[in-house]
Design a protein around this nucleic acid. Structure first.
Lengths: 150, 150
DNA sequence: TCAAGAAAAAGAATGGTTCTAATTTTGTGC
DNA sequence: GCACAAAATTAGAACCATTCTTTTTCTTGA
């Protein structure tokens, strides 16, 4: 652990072959500071930093960042896509059936694929994605049921 | 194990509190005979059996069947929902990154939740859904690459 | 046989996401 | 420092799976 400074956001972007624009720097920082944000929330965060950015630019930027592995796209069934900046540790997710909130769970193994199927039927498996379904602390307390499935 | 006949499709529908209509019988049988069919494919199968059925009726019927647990809805990120008739054994799925094909994998445990998170952060987890990502046998052979990610 | 309620029909609407085409900006080489 | 090519951004429309609304038809239990 000597003095190799952690790279700036701009350097990280350049490092994966992306051009550095104010919008993309803000995009990456917004995703990293946020907690599983959706596209609209990310767009708001980016606009707070750099003024007007179109929604399409956000989609395009997120696509680029996800393709290079700087962010990860999570798409829980039944809700729009969300993004997180925690990548590379192959962690998994807890999803609340009631309110849809999303939380991280560490993967015991830490690298993909952390599970191997007994019979993978000829597939070349490179990742095992796990979603734990349940109720979050807020929704599982019987008192004050604020959110409910219809 | 005496001679208790397996129930007819109609009896199964009635058993979960649903009304028996030609469309729903055909719907359930189509899903069961098919292999992870999409909504359009299911609609085609139903129409082959009972003539005209609207797409909305198929959506409505699938929703009802899924709510009662007679069918299971699978929603792999990036592709439209598909349905399967194999329920109750908590099996998982292999998804091909290239062509999107879906295959079943037996769960070693067999009942949900088959995995427990190390730290479930207060969530009451009732199911662990696993998706194995990889390439199917057809797409992983280097020769004749028919399908490719853009 | 009848009434109540569930299911189906038709049609429109919704919403997240992607595509197209034109314009601007960035990084690089001269 | 300038110009050029590639990449990023924009605006706007298009897309497609899914859902909603309303009306009509059918199943079921009385």
């Amino acid at each position: 652990m000597t003095a190799s400074q952690s790279p700036t956001t701009a350097e990280e972007l350049r490092g994966v072959g992306l051009r550095v624009t104010a919008a993309r720097v803000a995009l990456l920082e917004t995703v990293r500071r946020g907690d599983h944000l959706g596209v609209e929330a990310i767009a708001s965060g980016v606009r707070e930093r750099v003024g007007h950015v179109s929604l399409q630019a956000v989609y395009e930027g997120l696509h680029a960042l996800a393709a290079t592995g700087l962010v990860r796209r999570i798409e829980p069934p039944g809700s729009p896509a969300r993004f997180e900046g925690r990548v590379g540790d192959n962690h998994h997710h807890l999803v609340c059936r009631s309110c849809g909130v999303l939380a991280d769970v560490d993967c015991a193994v830490g690298h993909a694929p952390c599970l191997t199927a007994s019979d993978h039927r000829g597939f070349a498996v490179d990742e095992a994605e796990v979603i734990y379904w349940g109720l979050c602390p807020d929704c599982s307390t019987p008192a004050v049921p604020e959110h409910r499935d219809h």
